[in-house]
């Protein structure tokens, strides 16, 4: 697996798109730090961009890499290699190169700015960790979708739909549910609802760390209590880990059963 990972990783690291992605984050970080009055504000804006963009780019890269390397994958399948190691190797290649672009792209401007001397280092660190989780989760989901769909257009469509669902539609449904059920006490419901969407979970974990959490007011109290204690944040991290591992296992399992 490691060999395949190595080659996929090198291949991606040399791809133009990966550089575009890296440069985008680099530019974003620099501009944000230049424009924002405080680090905390820059991190908040960054969070908004990350929860939108990281899942989208993860999805698109995952699906594109699978389809573009499909024939090559078939070549590999005829070699004396274990199937699962081919797919897992490729998947980790995508996920890790994406995460590295994110971490390096944003890391450089913030390090230059002096994040290590700032109290916001933990918030920034958490943001990068969450971004990495989201990269893994969404490239994993899209890799599975690609594996499931021979038709590229269909696969691409489903992957974008999956992203759209998690990023937007889920919250829309959530909001409609909140409005329709507004006579009932809903804190627990909203806690549970938002925990099961990795994008929402990442956003809330980040919000609670930043100044803006004050706006969550009464409702935020339960969230703060939950995420504030050791158990809660462990659970949150576990759920993110579960979101990361599940696609990997499904990938392993489905790739073993697939004809090429």
């Amino acid at each position: 697996m490691f060999k395949i990972f190595k080659y996929s990783f090198y291949d991606l690291m040399r791809s133009r798109w990966n550089y575009v992605y890296l440069l985008f984050y680099l530019a974003l970080g620099l501009v944000l730090l230049f424009v924002s009055t405080s680090l905390s504000k820059a991190i908040l804006t960054l969070m908004n961009i990350i929860i939108l963009l990281v899942p989208l780019i993860g999805t698109v890269f995952g699906i594109m890499y699978y389809y573009s390397s499909k024939e090559f994958t078939e070549l590999l399948l005829a070699l004396p290699l274990k199937r699962s190691s081919i797919f897992l190797g490729q998947y980790f290649g995508v996920a890790i190169s994406l995460s590295l672009s994110l971490v390096i792209g944003l890391g450089i401007p913030f390090v230059i700015y002096g994040i290590f001397q700032s109290a916001d280092i933990w918030h920034f660190g958490q943001l990068l960790i969450l971004g990495t989780f989201l990269s893994f989760i969404f490239s994993g989901i899209s890799y599975n979708i690609a594996l499931h769909n021979e038709n590229r257009i269909k696969g691409f469509g489903f992957a974008i739909l999956a992203w759209l669902f998690m990023a937007v539609i889920y919250d829309g449904i959530f909001m409609i549910a909140l409005v329709m059920l507004h006579e009932y006490p809903l804190e627990k419901f909203s806690l549970i609802f938002s925990i099961f969407n990795p994008i929402d979970l990442s956003r809330i974990m980040m919000l609670l760390k930043l100044d803006i959490s004050a706006m969550l007011g009464y409702t935020g109290a339960l969230f703060k209590m939950f995420f504030g204690n050791y158990l809660g944040s462990t659970i949150a991290m576990l759920i993110l880990a579960l979101w990361t591992i599940t696609p990997v296992f499904i990938l392993k399992w489905r790739s073993a059963k697939k004809d090429f």
Partner: peptide, 14 residues
């Protein structure tokens, strides 16, 4: 109307 909805603050949907 539903104070819990504030939890969607800064979400893409909002």
């Amino acid at each position: 109307r539903s104070p819990e909805a504030i939890i969607l603050l800064r979400s893409i949907f909002v």
